[in-house]
Design a protein around this nucleic acid. Structure first.
Lengths: 210, 210
DNA sequence: GTCTATATAGGGATAGAC
DNA sequence: GTCTATCCCTATATAGAC
């Protein structure tokens, strides 16, 4: 494996585990058993590393936020959408841990992240309108707008919320956090679902959380 | 006004405006036209300042999260609860901007903040159960648990969410952000409200956001 | 209480040899 | 591509005079 890729991989792991502000270029070099000079041969500076990682993140998130085409979105689209979003956030959680800090240092990152956020809201709206269209749920336009914003907020910050609530030592498996997050978002949609769909969701949720 | 208090006041303002990690003790001293040495006469270190500000924050938030006693909570309690919470967060928003960063540097702060979060959820639950009891809304125990968590997430992170969405330059007045936040949280509760209460809330929301 | 001057430490980044 | 050595800068914090 090329040194450049090893640096990216290790940086991502250290950032995710310890928070980007606490990881210096020396830490990264140490962890890889290479010299700081070598690291700076491959990357201009620390921001350069972060930018590369952000590009990877952005590609993956864009893929997750693809609006289903050529057909009316349904409940399965919602499930898939949420899982892909949560997994991408988990993989690049260092961005979310110090979001304000990181975005304020780099205007381009800020612009791109904002676009992702708007897209998150937009995709949620498309899917919700699809659910209304096929008769699975009932909601006004204003309901959908507010609901889509709330879905975006919970999806974006759920992992941060959980990291504070659980003690650093005794936190459960990673997958639990994601599953609970998906459940929380579905709980936002549930009250708008019509009788049958709502019962189905309740049933699914019970199994899902066991 | 005593120098000590001026330091606290100015620190809070600078932290809120620029983010705590970017404000050094020298910045604070500069802004006050005092020497760094003078600042360190009044406070052992930067963390000492943050701890004091956190204590102020905690007292104010604890007050906001008082469960209404001796009577069944109603819709007005929910409004009051949300307004007080949002205003407290706004006043000490520097804590929320770099929450992970700040809490990870100080175990005591982390423990106390976690308690506040649990209390946020708990108070929301108490109020929601009150609403069910007086017949204003219908929800199962599981509905209420999930809803209370979501209320806490949105209330905690709404301002962060909005700061990213709005451009740093052209953001609206401060009060707008708070009002929108309260609206978003009420939108979480709305679908559980019974006919009359729901219509009333819709009416109120329209006026509220105009 | 307040100042000036300074010690200390650490992170980001580069030069030049190999 | 990789290393060693080093420089610069900034932030925290202290010492000692006034």
């Amino acid at each position: 494996m090329k040194t450049r890729d090893r640096i990216l991989q290790t940086s991502l792991r250290l950032f995710n585990d310890n928070g980007e502000p606490r990881i210096t270029t020396n830490h990264i070099a140490d962890e890889l058993d290479i010299s700081p000079g070598n690291l700076y041969y491959h990357f201009r500076n620390k921001d350069d590393i972060i930018n590369l990682l952000f590009q990877q993140f952005e590609r993956q998130m864009e893929a997750a936020l693809q609006v289903p085409e050529r057909r009316v979105p349904n409940m399965e689209d919602m499930w898939l959408y949420l899982h892909l979003v949560f997994e991408t956030i988990w993989e690049y959680r260092f961005l979310y841990r110090d979001l304000d800090n990181i975005l304020s240092r780099n205007k381009k990152l800020r612009t791109h992240f904002r676009r992702i956020l708007e897209r998150k809201i937009h995709t949620a709206e498309i899917i919700l309108r699809g659910l209304v269209e096929v008769g699975v749920m009932s909601a006004t336009a204003a309901d959908i707008a507010a609901l889509a914003r709330n879905i975006a907020v919970v999806a974006t910050y759920w992992l941060n919320f959980q990291r504070i609530r659980t003690t650093p030592a005794a936190d459960g498996a990673d997958s639990d956090h994601l599953a609970l997050g998906v459940y929380q978002v579905l709980a936002l949609v549930a009250p708008f679902l019509n009788g049958d769909a709502q019962r189905l969701l309740r049933q699914l949720s019970l199994e899902y959380l066991s």
